[in-house]
Nucleic acid binder design. Structure first.
Lengths: 199, 199
DNA sequence: ATAATTTAATAGGGATCGCTATTTTAATGG
DNA sequence: CCATTAAAATAGCGATCCCTATTAAATTAT
């Protein structure tokens, strides 16, 4: 039997590329070089394997991202690096395009509702991490008091999800970073309102 | 046999909620109240039915959106209304959450690559519509000359995709609109750079 | 070496996949 | 009323779905 981490690495890659519903247990056993009973004795079920593959992949792919936000960097700088890091993760040359979590299992058969809930919770958790950083920024006077940090977190969350989707459609790293640069101009206080020219 | 539009309406709703891979032909025939041979004689195949259901649904759900952008409204105002309209579409009470196109078939089995290409092309087309409006805004001096309208279109495209994803996860209409309001602050020239407080 | 235990492979169960040949029913025309 | 065409239902094709009971091989222990 193969090493557990090796198996999870292979499984994660397949799930990442094809999604949960697009990956069959036959795909998985074939790629992992094991027989079906081995998969079930080692990982429990297809859904359990997906959970473990997600945990494994998150720990490896985005382990350092939490550190960026937790660091002593100014909030704007930390956010910039965080988003750039995600853009790099979305466009790794020898990995599937996009993020394994950001745009996973959005539409799904009823029977896979529990898997959709899992990915939704992971997305919600990462937005809460962003919000917590923004709350800290408010308390450290890097953001105006009264800033709607929840919506701000979901705004940058939307950017992250949009980048993942566009990566799946073939977007390159440079494009994502130009897109991030625009998103960063929405940072409160970074710019100030002047007379618009739109009405 | 049921009316063609009625059938497409039912099929579109199923595909919208469950996605292409999450919807089986048995689901479709059962919901439409027809037998499998009727589905195939009337629509050709599952993939053909999906194409037709997409066309049908786009024409009905987002027909008026193109008009908003094509109107004489100032670009910023048109964009605002366009995004608000999409937020409403993402959160219709008696319809599946999110957009049927924005976040569809991102991850997929190899055998469904042609379906993924179809949805990717639809997404690209809608970004080109946005870009065209922004180009017009440049020529009408509503945006600074030299504005990167392509990236700006993909930025708002990312917002649209993020809103769809978050709708699938249960986001409400009001949240999406607060999110849009932040995204609109990235409109070039709407605000001007001042000394940042981030480094 | 023989027995006990673990590990892996075969084979297949019950259900569903997308799709279709064939039969039955219904509607139309002479 | 019967014949002909059109529509719909039944039944089932081969393949694949997720999963497991059972058998075979390899390892360890006595």
């Amino acid at each position: 039997m193969l090493d557990r981490d090796t198996g999870l690495d292979i499984a994660a890659r397949l799930f990442w590329e094809r999604g949960y519903e697009g990956t069959s247990t036959a795909d998985l056993t074939k790629a992992m070089g094991i027989n079906p009973p081995t998969l079930y004795s080692n990982f429990g079920s297809k859904e359990e394997l997906y959970r473990q593959a997600l945990d494994f992949s998150i720990a490896r792919e985005s382990g350092c991202r939490a550190e960026i936000l937790a660091s002593a960097l100014p909030a704007y700088e930390a956010l910039s690096r965080y988003l750039y890091n995600i853009a790099d993760g979305d466009t790794q040359p020898d990995k599937p395009a996009g993020c394994m979590v950001s745009t996973a299992v959005l539409q799904h058969a009823e029977e896979n509702a529990s898997v959709a809930r899992l990915t939704a919770e992971l997305r919600e958790a990462s937005m809460q991490v962003l919000k917590a950083r923004f709350d800290r920024a408010v308390s450290e006077d890097e953001l105006p008091a009264g800033t709607d940090t929840d919506t701000l977190a979901r705004f940058y969350g939307a950017i992250i999800q949009g980048m993942s989707a566009q990566s799946c459609d073939g977007a390159c790293n440079a494009l994502l970073k130009r897109l991030i640069d625009i998103a960063l101009t929405a940072w409160p206080g970074k710019r100030t309102t002047v007379a618009g020219n739109s009405d």
